[in-house]
Design a protein around this nucleic acid. Structure first.
Lengths: 114, 114
DNA sequence: ACTACATTTAACGAGATGGTTAAGCAAGTG
DNA sequence: CACTTGCTTAACCATCTCGTTAAATGTAGT
């Protein structure tokens, strides 16, 4: 059974919902890291880190490679593109320069143009 | 005790993790809606809708107003700005070329200039 | 083979989630 | 007042989540 786009988005958003996982992604943006590295960085046990990595991998937000006993994690930001794209559609609703009426009109026009 | 920025982000992301809630936000982007409206739109019970709205309200993604017996929900997209800002920091990791990053930054600046 | 080390898996517990049905509340209507 | 209506709350259930500690797995070194 193929994962739907909505499922994928849900998986990504729920992966991002945990502050430790977001911090792990930030860490991996700086440098790849082993499970031990991350365990040293965060105040949780290694099994806890391991499961966070599993969640991130399942969301395709990281990839992992094994070099001997060490498994290093690497950031894979592609799913964030989809998440950003989903959120972007609401930009007009939070942009301060537009009031709510303008936002509504912009939405209508955007829909009509297509 | 003040909610930290990280907590707020977590709340928003976890609110977005549910496909029904994302669909509710999409619905509210088109038009404000009562609980009954949303219950008619989605294949879940009214109490389920009511609780989704509670979650969205707690994440400040909607605001609610009471007019007689009807409680209409309105999209409040401001928290999405923070979510987008968090994700944006990773754009360079998913953008193929730095040129496109530059283009994006230029586009953002152009938008801000308005 | 034995030992050391990095990591995962298993088992557990507290608490959240998302759905249901049934009951309670508040606001208009006969 | 009694009744309906829109919505929320309560109670329940199955499942997931995030942490723990202890055991298992796998790879490297001697």
């Amino acid at each position: 059974m193929p994962a739907t786009a909505a499922d994928q988005l849900s998986t990504v958003f729920s992966a991002l919902a945990d502050p430790t996982r977001r911090a792990i992604l930030a860490e991996l943006a700086d440098h790849n890291a082993t499970v031990s590295d991350l365990t040293a960085t965060f105040p949780i046990s290694m099994p806890a880190v391991s499961r966070h990595l599993k969640v991130l991998e399942h969301a395709s937000l990281i990839s992992r490679s094994q070099q001997g006993r060490w498994r290093t994690s690497q950031l894979e930001a592609a799913p964030l593109r989809d998440a950003a794209a989903w959120i972007e559609r609401y930009r007009r609703y939070w942009d301060a320069s537009l009031d709510r009426l303008d936002a509504h009109l912009a939405a209508i026009q955007a829909a009509d143009r297509r």
